[in-house]
């Protein structure tokens, strides 16, 4: 009867718990799926250690090499833009920080809202650009699956609903906020089971990459 408020409380309450539980189960399952497989022992004489190059790659791979930047500037720039915008909105928007504080007990200072708002706007534009790119670039069109479009939609919805809620462009507000939380929950639920896992596994992948190459004396 009380419609959107009930909806909000439902998504903030039981649904959030369900989403977090699925997320936690899925993520842990995924991480263990990976780690428990292990690696075969390597008997070849190493040229250098694995750890340091692995850690360096974890960070360094965030920046594209100049050649790639030259050949795929759009990919690199837009990818950067929306990732950074998304991270700013996710991690430096005060209400989100309070959410982390509430759930994890960790908190950090946030950014003033106009900056977050700007970042969110940029993210939205960049996300649309990535979609257009995905649909028009021959390689991306060829390798894209339904999952790619699904994930794009969910990510875009999260940012869009957040933007709409913040600017109160959808009434009533609890509905807008509820939609935002719901799409974030969808994202959480999908995360461990889709390419969104890369948020976590990319760092593992990079470490393995850096370690494998580092062992041979190349900082990858």
């Amino acid at each position: 009867m009380n419609g959107s408020m009930e909806f909000l409380l439902w998504v903030k309450g039981p649904l959030f718990t369900i989403a977090m539980v699925i997320f936690a189960i899925g993520l842990l399952a995924r991480l263990l799926e990976i780690f428990l497989l292990g690696r075969a022992p390597n008997y070849a004489e190493a040229r250098a250690g694995e750890w340091l190059p692995g850690l360096r790659t974890m960070i360094a791979r965030t920046v594209a090499d100049p050649g790639t930047f030259k050949r795929a500037p759009f990919n690199v720039v837009v990818g950067w833009l929306w990732h950074i915008g998304f991270l700013i909105a996710l991690l430096l928007f005060i209400p989100h920080i309070e959410l982390f504080k509430g759930v994890l007990g960790l908190y950090w200072p946030g950014l003033p809202n106009p900056i977050v708002d700007l970042a969110t706007g940029v993210t939205l534009v960049a996300l649309v650009a990535t979609l257009v790119h995905r649909m028009t670039h021959p390689v991306k069109r060829r390798i894209s699956t339904t999952e790619d479009y699904l994930v794009w939609t969910v990510v875009f919805m999260v940012v869009l609903t957040g933007y709409l809620a913040y600017h109160r462009l959808v009434e009533p507000y609890p509905l807008a906020l509820g939609m935002h939380i719901l799409s974030a929950e969808l994202l959480l639920v999908l995360l461990p089971f889709t390419k969104l896992t890369h948020i976590f596994t990319a760092f593992i992948a990079r470490w393995y990459n850096g370690a494998a190459f580092g062992r041979k004396g190349v900082q990858s």
Binding site: K12, P14, F16, V21, A24, L27, L28, P95, L99
Partner: peptide
């Protein structure tokens, strides 16, 4: 704060993580 979910406890999440594990 408004953005904090209702009734999601860290314990629940840890349990879920354990189930996931």
């Amino acid at each position: 704060p408004v953005s904090v979910p209702i009734g999601t406890s860290t314990t629940t999440l840890l349990e879920a993580a354990a189930v996931g594990a």
